[in-house]
Amino acid sequence: MSTEAPHLILSTSPFLKRPVDTPTIMRHVIYSLIPVMLAAMFYFGVSALLIMLVCVAGCGFTEWVFEGRGPLRDSPIKDGSAIVTGILLALTLPPGLPLWMAFLGAVMAIILGKVLFGGLGHNVFNPSLTGRAFLQACFPVALTTWAPYGDLGRFLALRGDNLSLPFLKPQFDAVSTATPLAMMKFESQPTEVTNLLLGSTSGSLGETAALLILLGGGYLTYRKFLNWRIPVGIFATVFLFATLLNLINAEKYPAGPFHLFSGGLVLGAVFMATDPVTSPVTQKGAWVFAAGVGLLVVAIRQFGGLPEGVMYSILLMNAFTPLIDRVTQPRIYGGRKKGES
């Protein structure tokens, strides 16, 4: 006979848990962004590094202030989502942006994008894009002033007035160039797709190296942390729509591949649109969402006043997510098929 009964735990089933938890997922998202971050530093030198550090610090700090000191939970920064928000925000910013603006953007990303809605999981809009939209609204000039890309040789050179003090008018004109999309839109001048793929163009920190972003996305898909339907759907829609326009008027509308790899599309499609919190949970919904983003991106780029529309497209579709979720509930096992009642 077993002597004394050992100390046994009573609980209800299931007793086992998949070892993956939310912080693990966030950690892997960060890993997958490392190549993109390195590329940003390669092209934009120390400016990129500074902006990324400031954004992560800003998001982390804000999260800590609003969530971490609450009495109920112990330090929710540990879930890592604020760090991801910071990195992604940084990747959407131009390298020459004054750091104080970047910091402000990071703070607002957390406050407007998350805290106001009740924290992680309850927000409607992607926090990084919310922060970026805020900045764009406040400082339209600074946010659309793009430094030319460089290489490691110029690592230490700042790409703009990073260190300007708050509210002083920074000097922009010296080094600015146009992004491929702006060149296309305003001067009808296309850029080679290979340059777009490799990132040797001007643009925001993470807009440049499409290949590396795809690599990160591929890794996350492989680990099942990313819903591949969303980027695939966006790419397909953008490509089809752009090709259609291109067939109508090749002069005015660039071909599909240009659209795919220019601007923030790849970054947005792989890392922002797939933010699980703000995209639909149903598989059908993911396709609808992706198609919506794709259509809006091309429409804004071609018919709107702005050269780039990824940010607004995603934010707009974020707003539709609850609705999409509601109408795309899967049919349950043994439930009635659509149409029957």
């Binding site: 938890d21 939310t22 992680l120 999981g121 699980p276 949970v281 598989q283 899967p330 096992y333 439930g335």
Partner: peptide, 21 residues
């Protein structure tokens, strides 16, 4: 294990054999 907020990752939807949410 510590409970975190739902991040709407849809893992549970994919796992549910009767397709609930």
């Amino acid at each position: 294990r510590r409970e975190y907020p739902c991040i709407r990752c849809a893992a549970c939807l994919d796992a549910c054999p009767v397709f609930l949410n």
